[in-house]
Amino acid sequence: MEIFISLLIFIGAFFTLVGSIGLVKLPNFFMRLHGPTKATTLGLGSILSASVLFFYTYLDTISLDEFLIVVFLFITAPVSAHLMAKAALHSKKKV
């Protein structure tokens, strides 16, 4: 169980890092948009599920708040990505 939780935490942190690397490394805005919106969402999802398991195994408390955060993020991440892309298209048109 401990190994499984550690693996989930590590995968989550890795994806968070990859999202930010993509943010710095990729050459234009539309390509940069891909990194944070996807990698970071899955990274956070796995960190939060790790924390559910962590609190269950180590502290014997079941806390399910985390799922609320995960669901909320999975709903809002595409919406904010869409709006940012729209804003970028708009500012391009003006110039």
């Binding site: 942190a13 930010s20 944070p36 970071t40 969402t41 990274g43 956070l44 960190i47 993020l73």
Partner: peptide, 8 residues
């Protein structure tokens, strides 16, 4: 991205 990372 900062917001999401701060949640993590």
């Amino acid at each position: 991205t900062c917001y999401i990372n701060s949640i993590a």
